[in-house]
Design a protein around this nucleic acid. Structure first.
Length: 728
DNA sequence: AGATTAAGTCTTTTT
DNA sequence: GACTTAATCT
């Protein structure tokens, strides 16, 4: 009954996407096109057609999106049973039952970034490699890409020819060996092992294919090869695969996302039907025009329309400020203006390219006493006290987890130091035992004193005493761990810092209590595997009544009435590490496109004349994207800069009285601005950097920039009007 | 063993 | 500037 009612609210193309039940379907959905609604309606429609909810599997990009979708499916009075989760969560489930085929025990630990690094360091130690040139992080990055491509260590070793690849191959093999010993997987393993499992074990593939007769994958433009392979394997038997996405919103290339997956969907599934959702129900027409103008600058792109549905123009402001403090103060006073006009705080968001940029904004918000929430990657789960608690828990359910054990064996301190641990580790290596097993055999390690043996025995006894509780509810066990381990005591003695840590652990235990209530058979291993995939992004609460601060990446999939995007300057957006690579530059542009298209009514883009980066005050070069944004209701490029500086001066006068201690920097005279453009390879001289050759010249009027490779070896990007380059 | 201090490293985005 | 590691002191 409610299903057909909803149908009437849909546009023609939305209906088409909802009611094409059988076979492959590609939904190219622009921003604000009601894509999520289409997916929900599609699930409801499938069920109305007689499909069992148990046979439907919807994949979302984040846990948050999954949770929201589950709620919305329920809200449509749809019978329960539809599986909605991320790829990673689905993989956890699959590996729990079938992991033994690919060397994964059911109680496996999931390693996060820092645990991966620890593991890699350990692996490198056994290899005796000189790692001065290859940090664990660099190696892990390379390995991550290999795993995304489903390449196993031996296969890669066979084709590794250059020096770096050979090192990577060795590290990969040792690292993977260590993970297996610890019965642990990293994020990429979850995907790779599942993909390999489905590829090489037809029985498992069939089981999954029979279970999930209808597969939906959202944000398909950001799937990597492993995810692509998993989806394909599940759908191969029946062809009922519906993917939705927008190539213009692909922003996870650095994580292995392959935009080719969505571009090649029609080739993979020749019978695929394609539906385009080009109408935008979210943003004001002038905001959309701006977004369209920007994304048009991407050359490797199929043109797509953004058709505004909302008739009323919104407010678009692009403005320059002196530095990040003025930027923040101005934005906050603008927010205060909105609030005075009745705009709820939860309708307002501030986006930035890197998380560290939240700080000046936060400081200004605190000064103004405005409520806000910062959405950040893994802040909570990265805290020491939380990691310690989870390490205890991991060790309880998965004793071979040496990484967890070494983390907590002496935290809080219990007199088992590095020397002792090394002796036990030597014994473990000799007999090929996990560390925890070796701890039980201290009688065999003659070099240990009796006092130390007693301490170790007490530790082992404590862990053993926790084990029987792991099959029950999680919260009581955590509480017991917290008390018996001595963590609580040590934090209570830790002053202010300790009391903050106490609060965090309390929050963790509360979350566990909620889990205990929600799940029929709560178990520690299940809880641990679930929260390993959580991030703080999942904690964003749109109904909190607070201003939201987040990175542009975290903004994906969200919408706000008023959006502020800060730091539109070269080196930040586009980011320093992306601006020299054309593909990465296009992704930066898509990132800004995502940010702009989050805004419904108001869009405020800010950049500064100067900005403190890593403690150094730097002169900022306006982002090249600002020039690409030239929408019709904006001033032209030249007047645009003149006008924005006039705005700034008015603004500055107001603030100078308030902030007398801030020193103002006046720009250098722009005498060089009319200089003829430079040509590539031209020899120039700079006052500080000396002689160099022009690498590139970008014409941006009086703000033109050059990249110069100096004889010192370093390459600098400079603004022509400030650099005072002399032609030689 | 453990705490404190000094020096050194690295700085994007996140499941 | 934030964080990790190494060196030194208690």
């Amino acid at each position: 009954m409610p299903i057909s009612a909803k149908f009437n609210d849909l546009t023609a193309s939305q209906k088409e996407a909802v009611s094409h039940f059988e076979g492959p379907l590609l939904v190219i959905a622009g921003p604000g096109s009601g894509k999520t609604r289409v997916i929900i309606n599609r699930i409801a429609a499938l069920i109305a057609q007689g499909v069992s909810p148990w046979n439907i599997c919807a994949i979302t990009f984040t846990n948050k999106a999954a949770e929201e979708m589950r709620n919305r499916v329920v809200a449509m009075n749809t019978p329960a049973g539809t599986h909605v989760s991320t790829f990673h969560s689905l993989c956890v489930r699959v590996l729990r039952y079938h992991g033994s085929h690919v060397g994964v025990g059911s109680n496996f630990s999931i390693y996060d970034d820092s645990e991966q690094t620890k593991c890699m360091k350990e692996a490198l130690k056994t290899l005796n490699l000189d790692t001065t040139n290859f940090t664990p992080g660099k190696l892990l990055e390379a390995i991550s890409l290999l795993k995304n491509k489903l390449e196993y260590p031996d296969a890669f070793a066979a084709r590794a020819s250059d020096y770096f690849s050979k090192i990577v191959a060795k590290a990969y093999k040792a690292y993977q060996h260590l993970l297996t010993q610890n019965n642990a997987v990293d994020f990429d393993d979850l995907l790779m092992k599942t993909a390999v499992l489905l590829r090489d074990f037809p029985a498992v593939r069939e089981e999954l294919s029979n279970r999930y007769k209808f597969l939906l994958v959202d944000e398909y433009q950001d799937t990597n090869h492993a995810q692509y392979a998993i989806a394909r394997c599940i759908a191969l038997g029946h062809g009922n695969i519906c993917v939705t996405g927008d190539p213009d919103q692909s922003i996870y290339r650095w994580r292995g996302a392959d935009i080719a997956n969505i571009l090649a969907f029609e080739k993979d599934w020749p019978s695929a039907k394609v539906v385009k959702l080009e109408e935008n129900f979210r943003s004001a027409p002038n905001i959309l025009a701006l977004a369209d103008k920007l994304i048009a600058a991407n050359t490797s792109r199929k043109a797509k329309r953004l058709i505004p549905v909302i008739p009323h123009p919104g407010e678009v402001i692009i403005r320059q400020y002196e530095d990040e403090a003025y930027e923040a103060d101005s934005i906050i006073s603008d927010i205060a203006r909105l609030a005075k006009n009745g705009v709820p705080y939860s309708d307002i968001a501030v986006f930035y390219r890197v998380n560290s940029m939240s700080r000046p904004i936060e400081e200004a918000l605190v000064r103004s006493r405005l409520p806000y929430q910062v959405v950040r990657g893994v802040e909570f789960y990265g805290r020491k006290e939380i990691k310690d608690m989870l390490a205890y828990c991991k060790l309880i359910v998965n004793p071979p987890d040496d990484v967890a054990l070494t983390r907590i064996i002496n935290s809080p301190t219990r007199g088992i130091g590095d020397t002792t641990l090394e002796k036990v580790a030597a014994h473990a290596r000799m007999h090929n035992l996990p560390l925890y097993e070796a701890l039980k055999q201290t009688f065999a390690v003659t070099s240990l004193s009796q006092a130390v043996r007693t301490k170790i025995a007490a530790f082992v006894a404590m862990i053993e005493q926790f084990k029987p509780l792991a099959a029950g509810p999680v919260a009581p066990l955590m509480k017991k761990v917290f008390e018996d381990s001595g963590m609580q005591k040590s934090l209570e003695a830790g002053g202010l810092e300790g009391s903050a840590a106490l609060d965090n652990v309390e929050e963790l235990i509360n979350a566990a209590a909620i889990y205990d209530q929600q799940i029929d058979n709560p178990a520690l291993y299940d809880y641990l595997q679930q929260i390993a995939l959580f991030s703080d992004t999942d904690k964003f609460d749109p109904a909190s009544g607070k201003i939201a601060l987040m990175s542009l990446h975290a903004a994906k999939g969200l919408e706000f009435k008023h959006v502020y995007i800060i730091g539109l300057q070269q080196g930040i957006l586009p980011h320093e590490r992306s601006k020299d690579n054309p593909d990465e530059l296009e992704e930066e542009r898509r990132l800004l496109f995502v940010g702009i298209t989050r805004a419904k009514k108001g869009l405020h883009i800010a950049y500064t004349r100067h900005r403190t980066i890593r403690g150094l005050l730097m002169r900022s070069i306006p982002s090249q994207f600002l020039y690409e944004l030239g929408a019709s209701d904006l001033p032209s490029r030249d007047s645009f800069l003149a006008e924005s500086s006039r705005d700034f001066n008015d603004f500055r006068d107001d603030y100078i009285a308030d902030l007398p201690s801030r020193t103002m920097q006046t720009p250098a005279p722009s005498s060089a601005s009319k200089k003829a453009p430079f040509t590539t390879d031209e020899l120039v001289e700079h006052k500080v950097f000396g002689l160099g050759r022009i690498k590139s010249y970008t014409d941006m009027g009086e703000n033109s920039i050059v990249a110069v490779r100096f004889n010192s070896g370093q390459t600098k990007t400079l603004m022509v009007k400030y650099a005072n380059l002399k032609k030689v």
